[in-house]
Design a protein around this nucleic acid. Structure first.
Lengths: 342, 342
DNA sequence: TATTTTTGCTTAAACGTTTAAGCAAAAATA
DNA sequence: TATTTTTGCTTAAACGTTTAAGCAAAAATA
């Protein structure tokens, strides 16, 4: 029963003795086709198991109804949640998404962009790889004239839509919370300064420290790749100081986890000896011992906003893309690692 | 400088005063085109920033060079690693992949299949949703005549290629390990029996228990959805027994984590009072306290094999698809949760 | 009833490639 | 030198849709 030859509009047309054009219009509910014909066409289409050829219609219409999504990795609660929400919004509007991952590599990101452009996507929603400094490939997307929406990891210089949280304020929230817990020497294991969001967190940290008249010690501000391993290393480095911090704010949950492991291994009481706060609210922060306080980035909202922003762009192509930031407030989830008991 | 009008083969042809056909052949390195012409064409293509229109070539060639991947969720180390390896192998052969997630829902899985078929993928590599019992949509893929490759969660009845680990033997490995640790009452929180892999784990558990002449108590064998929450619930249920188990083998790491939380909350010593083994080797198993022993499913190898199997199918379309299982041996990673100290 | 508008289609071309078939010129062979 | 083969292209059609333009018949309007 295997029907290798695919049913086309022409097959339906010849069954009903009408033109292929009429079939196409009937299937698309054109107002100039009679209800009777529409019904007949749809019945035959079903009987013949007709599946429209997306390639042909996309080619003819110059629109693929596909949206490309690029994330550093899918294996993260934040990104997979953003993706899920992008998908939900876009599916309703007849778009499908193609997910690709850069694995934090600039080279992979470039090849992802090429792949997506090659597939003729109608737009790209992306969060940039850690490695990415050169913006040439993203400029290429822009020059194609299709919408480019960035989230979380973006870049002002691209002058496109951006959805993210307020990293600067988040740092303030964290420092304030730690001060309230009685901490007086707060360290920051931050991300790479060249990435805007991490730079904002660092700036927020510095300003908040100044605001509260705490010591702003160079040794307490460390740049990191924010992997588990690097979190371990940087925490070890902090413990080696003669004047140890009494709180550490880590700009990523994975690095915070590495830090926590080192603290536990050294029998340091968390949060009484050293309090710990992470960033990202990954599920494991509430699984480990002690549970880690962290910043929730509202992935649901970011995903929805990214999708809606794309829709607005694609439906109003006459409006020129400009820098357009939507900044959401983040939320600090206080857990055991920074909840000093009285 | 925004060049809205895309460069086509015709543009290149008119610059060089040759036919579009010659340009197409030059770009595809056809042997009947002179080196001189090829060079000229490639230079002009680059100058005009020519990007081939994938839709047109796919339509004409009847081949999209896209492969669809369906996973229950991307937010899992196992699946994201499988995907990464599928991608690596297929990219080298000129294929790109489209990732979709079913969120363990049958309905979503069906719509994913429709999307992928609509996009004219050349094949589908999938791991089935927990919910899926009816195979009609997968039959639809088969009836299209494109390769269908299943991994991890598959179904014999579909008679297609399958790559997975030996679940039956894995259960034996786990029970044997627990027996060696001195455990005498081993419980199993298993997945849904209707899913083949979970059924195999259950069968393996039962046979291994019999083999070692241990008590096969109905109360010790529980079916579960294997979420964190359900793991908590089922472990609570086990603790309520008058004759508690001294070891619990959980068929999924998330549920194992829920179980671990309940044990910790009840101040039960792991592994001395109750030993615990999970399944899947998710990264968090080595992050929690105590670390959880688990089965590694060789995601790298599964991804590669799935991709290679697809390539073999697509390059040999004349060979009829039949049930063709590639079963890899899994590996038990022993950690603190089942390492009884002497 | 004569004219205008609407309905329900058809015809033909197009989207941007690829490819089978063919042909003249050049090169190789006899 | 005559014949055959190879080279390097062109021509034309096709993949499966969509859509602008058009036209006859039916319906609405004057």
């Amino acid at each position: 029963m295997r029907n290798k030859k695919k049913t086309t509009i022409k097959d339906i047309a010849s069954v009903l003795n009408i033109s292929p054009a009429a079939v196409s219009k009937a299937l698309n509910d054109d107002s100039r086709i009679s209800a009777k014909t529409k019904e007949a066409v749809k019945k035959v289409a079903k009987d013949l198991n007709y599946q429209p050829n997306h390639l042909a219609s996309a080619l003819r219409k110059g629109k693929s109804n596909l949206v490309g999504v690029i994330v550093p990795r899918t294996n993260s609660n934040f990104f997979s949640s953003v993706i899920q929400n992008i998908e939900e919004v876009l599916n309703k509007e007849g778009y499908n998404i193609i997910i690709t991952q850069s694995n934090e590599s600039y080279k992979k990101e470039c090849s992802n962009i090429d792949t997506l452009l090659f597939t003729q996507v109608d737009g790209i929603i992306a969060s940039m790889a850690n490695e990415t400094v050169k913006l040439d490939y993203f400029e290429k997307v822009k020059s194609k004239g299709i919408p480019l929406i960035l989230f979380d990891r973006g870049e002002n210089d691209l002058n496109v839509d951006y959805i993210g949280i307020n990293d600067y304020d988040s740092s303030h929230m964290i420092v304030e919370h730690l001060v309230q817990q009685g901490c007086k020497r707060i360290a920051h294991i931050g991300g790479y300064r060249h990435t805007r969001i991490f730079n904002n967190r660092i700036r927020g940290y510095i300003d908040a420290i100044k605001k509260h008249h705490l010591p702003l010690d160079e040794a307490l501000l460390i740049e990191s790749s924010l992997t588990i391993e690097d979190g371990r290393e940087k925490m070890t480095q902090l413990l080696a100081l003669e004047n140890r911090p009494d709180a550490v704010y880590v700009a990523g949950d994975y690095a915070a986890l590495g830090s926590l492991q080192v603290l536990n291994e050294n029998n340091i009481n968390i949060p009484n000896d050293i309090a710990l706060v992470g960033f990202g609210n990954e599920p494991f922060t509430s699984m480990v011992t002690p549970t880690i306080s962290s910043i929730d980035q509202h992935s649901t909202e970011i995903g929805k906003q990214a999708a809606l922003t794309f829709l607005e762009r694609v439906n109003n192509p006459e409006i020129k893309q400009t820098l357009n930031k939507k900044i959401l407030d983040a939320e600090l989830i206080v857990r055991d690692s920074s909840n000093v008991k009285k």
